[in-house]
Design a protein around this nucleic acid. Structure first.
Lengths: 217, 217
DNA sequence: TTAAACAAACCGACTGGTCGGTATACAAAC
DNA sequence: GTTTGTATACCGACCAGTCGGTTTGTTTAA
């Protein structure tokens, strides 16, 4: 437990790499730059990592493992498809505060992963998408979501709309991520609910008063 | 006119670079690899380009210039905000067939642009976004789009949802881009129209019969 | 004393870019 | 019609510098 009180060098390296990769891309950053920013040396680096590739893999894995685990727990904790969907989106976007750099690297630099590493990551990413898509399918079966929409496209649309915010969301911007997410959810629900589902979805509309009171998890 | 019958070397270089950049990123590809793939030499390359940077800039500019011009014309050609929005989306996604590689490079590698180049590109990209956002604002003023939604977030949501498809759309997949776009439009319209706008939006619903007949420009 | 944690010097491969030269095309001069 | 001049298109050897990674040496903690 206490071994994280003093940030160790490995974490320092990861943090430095995150910043640099986010700004210049994996192949645009040299190991020398990373160790300089982290305040260490190449010896220190290669003591903790077998290769530069491994660092990129760790960044990917830290992020997707966290998100996947979070999604599993969230999905189990709620009952209706609509509630599940909202909770999934909120739990994902909540990660932006801590993981925005991870996300940028995850989506822009995964092509630089070793093939073997990418397989592992892809598997976890697909597992995450499967959870989301399953919720959509559940909602269609329960009659809350329109069956005319292909679940795969809906899933990818939602993912795109939400993910894309890594390109424009600023921590110090005019809106918090929770506020933005409320709008996402409003738009997404309206686009996919049936008349039956509209009842429950109303609670998540930004026109209903209880939004500014905040969304609790 | 006839000077393009035989593909010239410069175009060959750009095509090769597009493929390679899309697969491995700008900094993951060397000039040697590009000229090998293009079937030319280092000398040939630097005869046509002052530097590797210039090639990346050209790829960006070709794409955004095309898209921006297309958007301007499209926007002028339609009257109602709803029609404008639909036409804008269709004209953008139609570019995927020819420009998917450009788009990938555009969104993944713009951080590798020279600062001066990036300024020019950013300006054009903002001009495009402004066109889209203006349509949203018009729709709010006309009473077709919900005024509760912040136009900036709506614009970014739409952009995200549509753009993200560059990560998963396959030319030889089960759905054509036009079919996918019809679903995008259905979802987007439902999420932003008022009761008033719903009338006109019905024409673009995937539940109405005329969708499989195709969308004509 | 031993092992882990780092530092610094170093290595070969490769990088973006240059340079002298050649091949081709077309126009002017004779 | 042939020669000459000149600009463009292109080639491939070569350069200085940087890359990821290794090796050797030193410090620190147990």
């Amino acid at each position: 437990m206490g071994n994280q009180l003093k940030k160790d060098l490995k974490q320092e390296i990861i943090d430095a790499a995150l910043q640099l990769f986010q700004a210049h891309g994996y192949n645009g950053v040299s190991v020398n730059q990373i160790v300089a920013q982290a305040g260490t040396s190449k010896g220190g680096f290669y003591h903790h990592f077998k290769a530069k590739d491994e660092l990129l893999y760790e960044i990917h894995d830290i992020f997707i493992t966290y998100v996947l685990e979070e999604a599993k727990q969230t999905e189990e904790h709620y009952t209706t498809p609509i509630a599940k969907l909202c909770a999934l989106l909120h739990s994902f976007t909540a990660a932006f505060h801590t993981y925005q750099a991870h996300i940028t690297v995850f989506y822009d630099e995964s092509k630089s992963l070793l093939d073997s590493d990418r397989e592992v990551i892809t598997q976890k990413r697909d597992a995450y998408r499967k959870i989301l898509q399953q919720v959509i399918v559940e909602g269609q079966k329960s009659g809350d979501f329109r069956e005319a929409l292909p679940p795969t496209i809906v899933t990818l649309s939602i993912t795109g709309m939400v993910n894309w915010s890594y390109k424009w969301y600023k921590q110090d911007g005019m809106m918090t991520m929770a506020q933005i997410t409320a709008i996402f959810i409003d738009m997404i629900l309206r686009s996919i609910v049936t008349q039956q589902g509209a009842e429950e979805a109303k609670h998540y509309s930004i026109e209903s008063a209880n939004i500014d009171a905040g969304f609790i998890f």
